[in-house]
Design a protein around this nucleic acid. Structure first.
Lengths: 243, 243
DNA sequence: ACCTGAACACCGTTCAAGT
DNA sequence: ACCTGAACACCGTTCAAGT
C-alpha cells in the first residue's frame, strides 16, 4: 500500500550516492529549465542521473508527479513571511514576487497556468497570505472567496501569457513567418490593428514574435498590477447606484 | 517548397471520401473534446478517420498544427460583429463570450492559456475588436498597448484556471485525497484558510476538488469581470495625486 | 530499501512507394 | 494529388528479479 516513502528525513544522509526524492526533483527542475515541460522525459532524467528509468519510480509515482514536484520547488520561497498593513502594497508585492519566481524558471509557466490545481505545487502559506491581504482590504463572506479567486487569477494570468513558450523547434523560421503575417494585416479590414502595429510589435500578446523571457513586458505588467489593485479597491463596497 | 496546400477551396467538393484539411481539423477538435489535449494522439485521430497516420501529414504539418487548428475552430465565432458604444458593456460581453466559447470545448483551455501566441488560433478580428473597445474607453499611445495586454490577460486568465483539467486518470481517488489534504490544514498555522474552508471548498482555486466544467464559478467570474472593468476605468486618467 | 533489466504497448515523424 | 506501408527513434509504466 504505502509506497514512495523515502528514508523519512532523518537517518542516513551520509552518502550522496542514493537518489532521494529531493535530488530527483531538483534534477527534474533543472532539466525542465533546459528543455521545457513538453520535451521533458523520464528517460532523459534517468540518463542524467546515471540510473535506469524505472529507478525513479521508487521515489516518485510518475512523470506528472515529477513535474508537480519540480514546480513546487520553484515556488518554495515565494510567500512573504509577514502580511503588510497596506493591502494594496501587499497585492503589488505578491504579483511582483510571483512573476520573479516564474521568471527564474520560465518553462514552468504553462504548467502553472494550466494545471495549477492538480498538483500540490501551491503552498498553503501562499493561500493564507492571499486571504490575509484581502481580509485587510475589507472583504468577508462570499465576496472574500470571489476576491481570492480574482487575486489568484490575476497573479497567474498575466505571467502565464507573458512567459508562454514560442515554438522552439524552428524558432527563427516561425518568428519570420509570424512577423510577415502581422505585417500583412489588411488596413481596410483591421484599421486599428494596422495603425498600432508599430507599437504592438514591441510587445503585445499574439502580435509579438518573441517570448517574455527575451523581451519582458515590464510596463504592461505594471499597468496590469495597477488595474487589479484599482479594481479590487472599487469592489470593496457594493457598487454605488448609477447606471 | 509549397506543401500542405489542399484543393484551394473551390474545385472538387463532390465526394466526402478524401480527407481535406477542414475535415481533419474538425475530427481533431472532436477527439480533443473527448480525450483532452494530452491524451490526443495523431495515431488515434488517424484510426478514427480510417486512414494511415501518415496520411494526415499531407493536410497538416504535424501534431502541433492539428491542435492549433482545432483551437482556431473553437474560437471561430467568438468575435462580435460590431463594437458597442458603451465600452464597459463591450468588455463584459467580450469576457462572457470568450468564457462561453471555451466552455463549449473545455479541454482546449490549457492550450489557450499556455500557447496562445504560438498558434494562429487568435483571429485578427478579435484583436481589432479589443483595440476598438479600448480606444472608445479613451486609451491611446503606449497605454493603449498596455490596456490591450491587460484585456487579453483578463479574458484568458480566469477561464484558463476555472477550466483547468484535474487529474483524470484516478479522478475519484485524487479528489478524495485532495479533500483530506484540505481538511487537514492546520488552523494554528493557517487560521484564515481553516476558517474559510467551508466556503472555499464550494469553488475556490487550488482548494476545490472539482473542475470548472462540473462546478462553474459563475459568481466569481462576475466579480472578476467587474474588477477588470472598474480597474480599467480607473486607469484611463493618470492617477490623481494621493497616497 | 533501493535499483536493475526486460518487456509491453504505445508514440510522432521520415521517406519511398503506390495509384 | 493524395494515400499506403514500412521503418526509425523514441516514449511512460509494469513487473519480476537482484542485492
Amino acid at each position: 500500500m504505502q509506497k514512495h516513502m523515502p528514508p523519512s528525513g532523518k537517518g542516513t544522509g551520509t552518502h550522496t550516492d542514493g537518489l532521494s526524492r529531493d535530488a530527483v526533483l531538483n534534477a527534474a527542475l533543472a532539466l525542465i529549465d533546459r528543455k521545457g515541460v513538453n520535451a521533458f522525459s523520464v528517460r532523459d532524467l534517468a540518463r542524467e542521473l546515471g540510473v535506469y528509468p524505472t529507478a525513479l519510480y521508487w521515489h516518485v509515482p510518475g512523470r506528472n508527479a515529477l513535474i508537480a514536484g519540480a514546480v513546487a520547488l520553484a515556488l518554495r520561497d515565494l510567500t512573504p513571511r509577514r502580511t503588510p498593513p497596506d493591502w494594496q502594497a501587499g497585492v503589488r508585492d505578491l504579483l511582483r514576487r510571483y512573476r520573479q519566481a516564474v521568471r527564474a524558471h520560465p518553462h514552468i509557466a504553462p504548467v502553472l497556468g494550466a494545471q495549477l490545481v492538480s498538483n500540490e505545487s501551491m503552498p498553503p502559506e501562499l493561500m493564507e497570505h492571499i486571504l490575509a491581504l484581502l481580509v485587510r482590504a475589507g472583504f468577508e463572506g462570499a465576496p472574500l472567496r470571489h476576491a481570492y479567486n480574482t487575486l489568484i487569477a490575476a497573479m497567474v494570468g498575466f505571467v502565464t501569457l507573458e512567459l508562454a513558450p514560442l515554438p522552439d523547434e524552428d524558432a527563427d523560421a516561425w518568428a519570420d513567418a509570424h512577423r510577415q503575417r502581422m505585417q500583412a494585416i489588411d488596413p481596410a479590414r483591421h484599421p486599428l490593428l494596422a495603425r498600432e502595429m508599430g507599437r504592438l510589435r514591441q510587445g503585445a500578446f499574439v502580435v509579438r514574435a518573441t517570448s517574455g523571457t527575451q523581451a519582458p513586458l515590464d510596463s504592461s505588467f505594471r499597468f496590469w498590477t495597477e488595474t487589479v489593485v484599482q479594481g479590487l479597491a472599487a469592489m470593496r463596497a457594493p457598487p454605488s447606484g448609477g447606471t
